[in-house]
């Protein structure tokens, strides 16, 4: 039972990441490989502020979200005019820079040793089991992020994002400042990812740089694409599939070293297969016309 709860919490955290990334990939057409970095900013901000300065963990989480959002807004503003490929390379280098900083700023992040003893967000230990509380918090945050992305996509703001996805030069010609819209979408997306990072840090109580690398960024991007970019439930389903599928490997009894490679193999094949055969993602066929609306 704790194992099942653990899986559900992981699904909630990764689904939050996927939903927030989908605001960029699915709705604005910006393929970002820096989502692992914003996830990490949230986790490290919450962990460091709590462990070093004794701030309540939720304060650290909020500060991390604001910090990641600000950071993303600036980066988004600077990179908004880069063409597809170059935007990918820019976010990709940002991700590598973040990992490098985590690993080498030993005095702050303790590098590969990681940070342990991160307090839990669960506050009512006498009433409900901490793990159950974490699940409620994770699902609650997922719900909030999902609702924000859903409402944004339906709003006038979202329509501009969709217009940018189809043709950003035309959108600019129609008098919408594409830079502002792209940066704002980037900021919202990064802040949500940072929130997920804080929840992750407080749940595992220990973080090290390996959880926030380019591999993680590619994994979250795969979740969005496999589930269905820009679809209402796509990223959530993608996250559930890619978190739960590898657990089947564990049930078969593969050793961990092999299992992690098989897992990578599976999601790589799934990513290629989806892009080739069903560009709309696994939920693509259920609501074909949604994209037009």
């Amino acid at each position: 039972m704790p194992y099942l709860l653990h899986l559900l919490i992981l699904v909630a955290i990764y689904a939050t990441l996927a939903v927030s990334l989908d605001l960029l990939v699915g709705h604005t057409g910006m393929v970002s490989l820096a989502h692992g970095a914003f996830f990490g900013i949230g986790a490290y901000a919450a962990a460091l502020l709590a462990v070093r300065f004794g701030l309540p963990i939720w304060t650290g989480a909020l500060i991390g979200m604001v910090g990641a959002g600000t950071c993303a807004f600036l980066v988004g503003f600077a990179t908004a005019r880069l063409r597809d490929d170059y935007f990918v390379i820019a976010t990709f280098s940002l991700q590598l820079v973040f990992t490098n900083l985590c690993e080498n700023l030993l005095s702050i992040t303790r590098g590969p040793l990681g940070i342990s003893g991160i307090p839990s967000l669960a506050m009512f230990e006498e009433i409900v089991a901490p793990q159950t509380q974490m699940l409620v918090i994770g699902l609650g945050f997922l719900g909030v992020v999902w609702l924000i992305v859903y409402r944004l996509a339906k709003s006038p703001f979202g329509r501009v994002l969709h217009a940018i996805r189809e043709d950003d030069v035309l959108t600019r010609a129609l008098g919408k400042d594409d830079r502002y819209f792209k940066s704002a979408a980037f900021a919202v997306s990064a802040a949500a990812a940072a929130g997920a990072g804080a929840i992750y840090a407080s749940y595992t109580s220990y973080i090290d740089p390996s959880a926030f690398t380019i591999t993680e960024a590619i994994l979250v991007l795969s979740m969005v694409i496999i589930g269905g970019a820009g679809r209402t439930w796509g990223p959530v389903i993608g996250a559930a599939v890619l978190v739960l599928l590898p657990e089947l490997l564990r049930l078969i009894g593969l050793p961990d070293a092999v299992a992690s490679n098989v897992r990578q193999l599976l999601y790589g094949v799934a990513l290629v297969g989806i892009v080739m055969l069903r560009p709309g993602g696994v939920v693509g066929w259920t609501n074909v016309h949604e994209r037009v609306r």
């Binding site: 057409g29 393929v31 597809d84 490929d85 990918v88 590619i218 991007l221 795969s222 694409i225 092999v258 490679n261 098989v262 990578q264 193999l265 999601y267 790589g268 094949v269 799934a270 990513l271 290629v272 892009v275 080739m276 560009p279």
Partner: peptide, 21 residues
């Protein structure tokens, strides 16, 4: 325009994992 790039990311992961296996 991002479809080939995404496919190449997938292939990159596949090749690397296959070799590691």
């Amino acid at each position: 325009s991002t479809a080939p790039l995404l496919a190449s990311l997938g292939l990159f992961v596949v090749i690397q994992a296959t070799i590691a296996l």
